[in-house]
Amino acid sequence: MTKTWLIYALGGGWGHITRALSLGRIAANQRKVKIMTNSPYAKQISDEGCLLHWIPDSADFAATCLQVREILLNTEYDCLIVDTFPRGLGGELANILPQLQAIPRILIHRDINPRYVQVKDLRSFVTNNFDAVIVPGEGTDLPLSDLPRVIHTAPWLIRNAEELLAQKIVRSRILKVDNDRQIILVCAAGQASELPLFSQLTRRLHEAFPESAVRILSPHCPEDELKTLWVSHHPGIECLAVADVVVGGAGYNTVYECVSVGVPLVALALPRLYDRQLKRASKINQVQNIPDALFTVKKILDTVNNSQSIPSYTNGAIAAVHHIMNFEL
């Protein structure tokens, strides 16, 4: 009988659901994969061979916790994988995980705020409630990365290098750039409340670089006047791979996708309750505001090599699937 994995991937934006799908799509060749998500964009993207349990993002805290509890305690699965939040996004896993001792439980440890780790005593909680911790390419300077059962992989990506669409197809059919103009891609893949910021950034870039093709990658069209510049395409890595420069936040997927495909990222460290975007952004082209972003984009475009190279990288999700399968045993 085929075994089933259940992935807890609650959290807004494209981030958590994309990371879950990066793992789930590879595992789906040998396992049934179910993903719990409350991303408002879940119904707009491909399920990649996984079954999505969508909890409406409009549900209040109590209703979300009830649905999580219902799924965890009344669904058949052979392995539970929890993304980022050991106790759950709202702490709802704290009294559920101890009831699941017979099922292998894996924590995916993306970087999180150390104060959250300290206040909630997550070191003890993770040690008592998880069989293994997998760090998906975030390095060793993480609050829980020194625990005994930690496994490190390369960053997880939703496409292997050889799976990316041909660059000519992405340029002409998706981004609608038919010549060899330089492409400035604004990646607005975070919270919906940040869309006005990225809309303003897109307008300023469009005005400042009239010879370049400026595009905004977003699940929803930000406003009517930007309709001709708007692109809605998932997975976004296929668009990032053909850009000359990307401007966006410093979230997990944006940073590691740009690094993997070899495209410079100009990053605004956006405020998050748990994620330390400032720490991630400090390692790349971090900017503080829109004028800084314009200046940095110009500096990059003046030196960028226009010849597009074929990306080559390691997808850590493949190794992660093998590690998790070993824990099933």
Rank of each mutant, 00 (worst) to 15 (best):
P155V: 06
W5R: 02
K3L: 10
G248V: 01
G49I: 07
N315D: 11
W5V: 01
R159M: 10
Y116R: 10
A28D: 07
K120H: 15
V297H: 02
V304R: 12
R215E: 02
Q288R: 14
L175T: 04
I151N: 13
N306M: 10
Y116N: 09
E162K: 13
Y8A: 01
P148D: 08
D60T: 02
A317D: 05
S282L: 10
A154P: 00
L80D: 05
C79N: 00
L164Q: 03
I184M: 02
E92F: 08
T140G: 12
E76N: 12
F125Q: 05
L122I: 04
Q286Y: 04
I106H: 09
G11N: 04
L21H: 12
V82E: 07
G236C: 11
R149E: 10
A189Y: 05
V133F: 09
L51E: 15
F295K: 15
L229Q: 14
E162S: 13
L51R: 10
L66D: 13
D111W: 03
D146M: 14
M325S: 14
T202C: 03
P291Q: 06
I237A: 09
N129L: 03
N289T: 03
L93V: 01
H233G: 01
V214E: 02
L147M: 12
N253V: 07
L278H: 13
H16K: 09
W14K: 00
I112E: 04
A281Y: 08
E238A: 05
N315H: 08
Q30R: 15
I106V: 14
Q308I: 13
V263Y: 12
L93I: 01
T18V: 05
V126L: 06
E138D: 12
I237V: 13
P222H: 04
P98R: 04
L268T: 00
T64C: 11
A20Y: 11
R110N: 05
L93P: 03
A293C: 05
S193Q: 13
L265W: 07
H16T: 07
I103D: 05
V242I: 09
I158E: 09
T37A: 07
D178E: 15
V245Y: 06
Q30S: 14
